[in-house]
Computed example of a mutant assay.
Amino acid sequence: MVSKRGRLDQFIAGTLQISKKAVRGLLITDKVLVDGQLAKSPDLQIDEFSHITCNCVVLRQYQKQYYMLNKPDGVVSATIDDKHPTALGLMTGVNTDMLHIAGRLDLHSTGLLLLTNDAKWSAALMAPEHKVDKQYLVTLANPLQQEYVEAFANGMYFEFEDITTLPAQLALLSSHQARVVLREGKYHQIKRMFGRFRNPVVALHRESVGNILLDNTLLPGEFRALTKAEVDSVIQH
Rank of each mutant, 00 (worst) to 15 (best):
M1S: 15
K4A: 11
R5L: 13
R7H: 03
D9P: 06
Q10Y: 11
I12S: 09
G14K: 11
L16H: 05
K20S: 09
G25D: 13
L26D: 02
I28Q: 15
V34N: 00
Q37W: 01
Q37P: 02
Q37M: 10
Q37V: 15
L38G: 00
K40P: 02
L44N: 01
L44H: 05
S50C: 01
S50H: 00
H51C: 07
H51W: 13
I52H: 01
T53I: 01
N55K: 13
N55V: 01
V57K: 15
V58C: 12
V58S: 14
Q61W: 03
Y62S: 15
K64Y: 00
K64N: 00
Y67C: 07
N70I: 07
N70F: 06
D73S: 14
V75F: 11
V76H: 07
A78K: 08
I80D: 15
I80H: 15
H84S: 11
A87Q: 07
L88N: 07
V94S: 10
N95E: 14
N95G: 09
H100V: 07
H100M: 10
G103T: 04
R104H: 06
R104M: 04
H108L: 12
T110P: 04
N117Y: 01
A119M: 03
W121T: 02
W121N: 04
W121Y: 07
S122H: 01
S122F: 00
A123C: 10
A124H: 02
L125Y: 01
L125E: 00
L125C: 00
M126E: 14
A127R: 15
A127Q: 15
A127L: 14
K131D: 13
K131P: 09
K134H: 06
K134G: 07
L137W: 10
L137E: 11
L137V: 06
V138G: 03
T139S: 13
A141D: 12
A141P: 05
A141N: 09
Q145C: 09
Y148N: 08
V149W: 06
N154I: 02
M156S: 10
F158A: 02
D162W: 04
D162S: 13
D162R: 13
D162E: 14
T164F: 03
L166H: 11
P167T: 05
A168S: 15
Q169M: 13
Q169E: 15
A171H: 13
L172Y: 05
L173H: 06
S174K: 04
S174W: 08
S175W: 09
Q177G: 05
A178P: 08
A178M: 06
R179F: 04
L182E: 05
K186R: 15
Y187A: 05
H188L: 06
Q189L: 02
I190P: 08
M193L: 04
R196P: 02
R198L: 12
N199W: 08
V201F: 12
V201Q: 08
V201D: 09
V202E: 15
R206T: 07
V209L: 10
N211Y: 09
I212W: 01
L214M: 08
D215V: 08
T217N: 14
L218E: 04
G221L: 02
E222M: 14
F223E: 05
A225I: 03
A225D: 08
K228G: 02
E230F: 02
E230R: 03
V231P: 03
S233Q: 08
I235S: 10
Q236L: 15
H237F: 12
H237Q: 10
